[in-house]
Write a protein that binds this DNA or RNA. Structure first.
Length: 872
RNA sequence: GGGGGCGUAGCUCAGCUGGUUAGAGCGUCUGCGUGACAUGCAGAAGGUCAUAGGUCCGAUUCCUACCGUCCCCACCA
């Protein structure tokens, strides 16, 4: 049965249908076979607030390529999909939506708020999944998970309990990063430092009892209200005698001591540092060491507290102005210095964070980090490209305790309970209502956990942990984690230490890192710039395959890439090329099915294309195994376009037209190689390959579950390949010459070939006629028409009598230039070979190659010289 | 302050562990409505591989320095 392809490639006409077919046949769901090796990936769960953006498109394209490749390679493959509840981001969106209705969280109350949140998730959580499907993602949707679903929640509570019992989770008052906009603490990893223009205010603090003042400097003068000391270095001769004395805090009048602490450095500024233990991490430490009181002067929304009536209720920046003004009026201000400095901002909302002392839950990182570093160091987990392990090590080795509690409602509620009566703390994954100590009523901690706390468990919680499930047993550890470099610290590192600690195993063996997708000018795509490109629009316009191609090609792991119209058009053009090649092949097929070619029946060009095809298989496979996805894809691209289409299809046309046995053999080779191409390309461009495949005669089922081609040396024919290469070389040379001379293709000419390799050219006449505008071809041992043009290739001298249009002067010039070129090459090679140390030290292979090249060029030179003589 | 990426054709980028006359896409120029494809075909032009040293028989590739550029990390008052 023959199937005609429509004339133009129109992806929208079949992509949806094919995806549906895969789903209906359940092809994404693995049939667990313990005899087979597994290959599994867990998706980086997109936020439920999200829309598919180019970053997702890239990330998921790469994952799908790997999954499809391994599936065809015979692995039992599982790609686990899911979404992330994204506590802070989602909550912010919901609060924002409520604000428009004039509602606040508090108006609603926790329960009603959470109802809204789940509604939100129902409404938007599925959207991005649908978008992933459009991309062609072959995820097992029957295993779709959500970071806040029952299984993940159970895992989270279990982990919290384990860590608590081990003393690796603790609750304490520490300085944390507070986001006044999100009204929650955030972890160190969630703080972005941005350079901002600021000022250095120099302030004089008078000594109590007169006798002068100490000068301190600050970038945040409003924190003066919370000062409880000024520190000097214990070895500072200038101030040693003042230690223990008191200063009067300007504007406030509080007596604050002068304390000695190493934190104050001799050579910085005046050597005196104001100490605000409640609002600065360093000062907090100083405060602990020197037993200073803590004075909170800012509220949760970064306003001055009621303790300072003059400034109470003022926003921190407003207060800053007022305080500076008052300091100046009071004669305390010693100077203002402009300053560029790095200011911490919230990675979600961009608000400047405020360090604040607060009672929070923390994970003790040091004991967890050690094995996590080890796993990468000893190679159990590998980053691709490798350089990202430096990033990882640096972060892991310097990490501070992880603040995991959030003052949010949308998330995993902390399974800690406090007794209303005796204050006892109980951590209970299964809940706790009665105090085990006094029988009092227990109240659960109102806070929730950092989103990343649940994401950290994703590779095993999605497979059923802590239950001992079949999936966990078979698919875990997973194999490749694909993600962007921007998320290594947030997520990758936390999955690694979590997995090692709870599952006693690595979460995955390879981390494939990709870069950012930037716009055509190289700028980050962002909402504020409005330069984002919507992958869905691209899919509508060009097809998912073209999008995938554009994202997978032309870049290497870990590097950013640019997305442009040119790129997507090039991708679409390639799809169109393949489409039309397939259309041509299929409209000429009279055979009933595709067979493995019989070497005995093959023509040289058949052997040539099969050899080229095998080389392509080898390259694609080895590059995919190295995660060089872009290189693998361009190997296919080059083979399809430059080798299969430009040459083999053309070379095969005479045979196909000839009919009979030769035609059948050529048709079979055409179809055989086409099928191979489709298989090689399927992981990258699943839709078009499936669509074409299903039109091939005698083929049944779906290409996505066929075997990936294996390199097979029995189809490598070096001798015939060499011969066809010689023919191609000569055809190209003729075309070039004719082009240079502006001979129109319609002007046919006789071609005489003088060659030492007659076997290569003997049956090639028809190729020259069709592809080099030859009217006929004749092999000659000598040629005497001095008015013919001469074209010298490595293997032959081609004579074409075109006397009437030859410009002898131009011809001489060209040949002379060519001679010069060849002589340069000869001189270079001779020089190299004359170099004793090159001959003795370079590998024999290299030396021999040089010798061969020299011989070839000498022969070529002889040909050119002969041609030049004829022109005299 | 520490760490890293990048600098190769007009533009965007490949070039694996050093070894042909350094490649591709786009763009430019020339020709072509050729029976799969003008989303195409056939050709051409275009690069002192940022700069300077070093190692080596040999460096775009390795090392050092330097310039430019981008990013990550860091509590500097």
């Amino acid at each position: 049965m023959k199937k005609e392809l429509p004339k133009t490639y129109s992806p929208s006409s079949f992509e949806g249908r094919i995806y549906q077919e895969w789903c209906e046949k359940g092809l994404f769901t693995p049939k667990i076979d313990k005899k087979k090796p597994h290959y599994s990936i867990v998706i980086p769960p997109p936020n439920i607030t999200g829309q598919l953006h180019m970053g997702h498109a890239l990330d998921n394209t790469l994952q799908d390529i790997l999954i499809r490749y391994k599936r065809m390679k015979g692995f039992c493959t599982l790609w686990v999909p899911g979404t992330d509840h994204a506590s802070i981001a989602t909550e912010a969106k919901i609060v924002e939506a409520m604000r428009k209705e004039g509602l606040t969280k508090e108006d609603l109350g926790r329960e009603k708020f959470l109802e809204r949140a789940w509604d939100w998730r129902a409404k938007y959580g599925g959207r991005i999944i649908e978008q992933l499907k459009k991309l062609g993602s072959s995820c097992d949707w029957t295993r779709e998970r959500f970071t806040l679903d029952e299984g993940c929640s159970a895992a989270v509570r279990k982990v919290f309990g384990i860590l608590y019992d081990e003393g690796l989770i603790y609750r304490g008052e520490r300085i944390i990063n507070w986001c006044p906009h999100c009204r929650t603490s955030i972890s160190n990893a969630e703080v972005n430092y941005e350079e901002q223009d600021g000022h250095f205010w120099h302030i004089r603090y008078p000594l109590v009892g007169g006798g002068g003042y100490l000068e301190v400097a600050t970038t945040r003068p409003e924190t003066l209200l919370g000062d409880t000391a000024v520190a000097v270095n214990p070895n500072d001769e200038r101030y040693k005698h003042l230690i223990g004395q008191y200063l009067s805090l300007p504007l406030v009048g509080r007596r604050i001591p002068i304390v000695a602490d190493e934190h104050a450095q001799l050579d910085k500024g005046t050597g005196c540092v104001k100490i605000t233990p409640a609002h600065d991490p360093n000062d907090f430490e100083v405060g602990r060491r020197c037993r200073l009181p803590m004075e909170v002067c800012l509220t949760e929304d970064a306003k001055i507290t009621d303790n300072y009536p003059k400034y109470a209720g003022m926003d921190r920046y407003e207060a800053r102005k007022a305080i500076v003004k008052d300091l100046e009026a009071g004669g305390y201000l010693a100077g203002i210095e402009p300053l560029k400095h790095e200011v911490g901002t919230c990675y979600r909302c961009g608000t400047t964070i405020e360090p604040m002392v607060s009672l929070q839950w923390f994970v003790r990182m040091e004991p967890l980090a050690k094995p996590a570093v080890e796993a990468v160091r000893d190679g159990r987990i590998r980053f691709v490209p490798e350089r990202f392990d430096k990033n990882y090590f640096h972060w892991m080795e310097n990490t501070q305790d992880w603040c995991i509690s959030r003052q949010l409602w949308w998330g995993h509620r902390i399974p800690a309970y406090y007794c209303d009566d005796c204050g006892k703390t109980v951590v209970a994954p299964d809940g706790c209502e009665v105090c085990p100590a006094c029988g009092g009523h227990m109240t659960q901690d109102p806070d929730t956990l950092d989103t990343w706390f649940s994401s950290a468990l994703w590779p095993f919680s999605t497979l059923g942990w802590p239950e001992k499930t079949e999936d966990l047993d078979y698919f875990y550890p997973t194999n490749t984690l694909v993600t962007g470099y921007d998320i290594i610290t947030f997520w990758v590192s936390r999955m690694i230490f979590s997995a090692l600690h709870y599952t006693d195993d690595i979460p995955f063996d390879t981390v494939l890192i990709h870069g950012l997708v930037r716009d055509a000018q190289g700028r980050k795509m962002s909402k504020s710039l409005g330069n984002g490109i919507d992958p869905l629009e691209i899919i509508d316009q060009y097809g998912a395959d073209a999008l995938r191609f554009a994202l997978a090609t032309g870049n290497s792991p870990g590097n950013d890439m640019r997305f442009s119209d040119e790129k997507i058009e090039a991708a679409r053009n390639f799809a169109n090329k393949l489409w039309n090649a397939a259309r041509f092949v299929m409209m000429n097929l009279t055979i009933e099915g595709i067979e493995t070619p019989d070497p005995a029946a093959l023509a040289p060009e058949d052997k040539w294309i099969l050899s080229q095809y095998e080389a392509c298989v080898k390259s694609v496979t080895s590059n995919l195994d190295k995660y060089e996805i872009g290189v693998a894809l361009s190997a296919i691209y080059d083979f399809v376009w430059d080798v299969y289409c430009d040459w083999y299809i053309e070379l095969s046309k005479p045979s196909v037209a000839a009919g009979g046995e030769r035609s059948a053999v050529a048709q079979n080779v055409l179809a055989y190689v086409l099928r191979g191409i489709l298989c090689l390309l399927h992981p990258f461009m699943p839709f078009i390959t499936e669509e074409i495949y299903q039109g091939l005669p005698g083929e049944e089922g779906n290409i996505m579950v066929k075997d990936f081609p294996e390199y097979d040396e029995t189809f490598v024919f070096p001798a015939e390949s060499e011969n066809i290469a010689k023919v191609i070389d000569a055809i190209r040379a003729i075309r070039t010459r004719r082009n240079e001379m502006n001979v129109p293709p319609s002007r046919k000419a006789k071609v005489y070939i003088e060659t030492k390799f007659p076997e290569a050219f003997r049956d090639a006449g028809v190729f020259f006629e069709r592809l080099a505008s030859a009217s006929s071809i004749e092999l000659v041992s000598e040629f005497h028409d001095d008015t013919a043009i001469r074209i010298i290739t490595d293997a032959a001298t081609v004579h074409i009598p075109l006397a009437d249009i030859i410009d002898f002067e131009a011809e001489r010039k060209r040949l002379t230039a060519e001679l010069q070129n060849v002589e340069g090459e000869i001189a270079r090679a001779e020089g190299k070979l004359a170099n004793e140390s090159f001959v003795s030290r370079a590998p024999e292979k290299v030396v021999n190659a040089e010798r061969e090249k020299l011989a070839k060029n000498r022969e070529k030179r002889a040909g050119i010289v002969a041609a030049l003589e004829k022109l005299q």
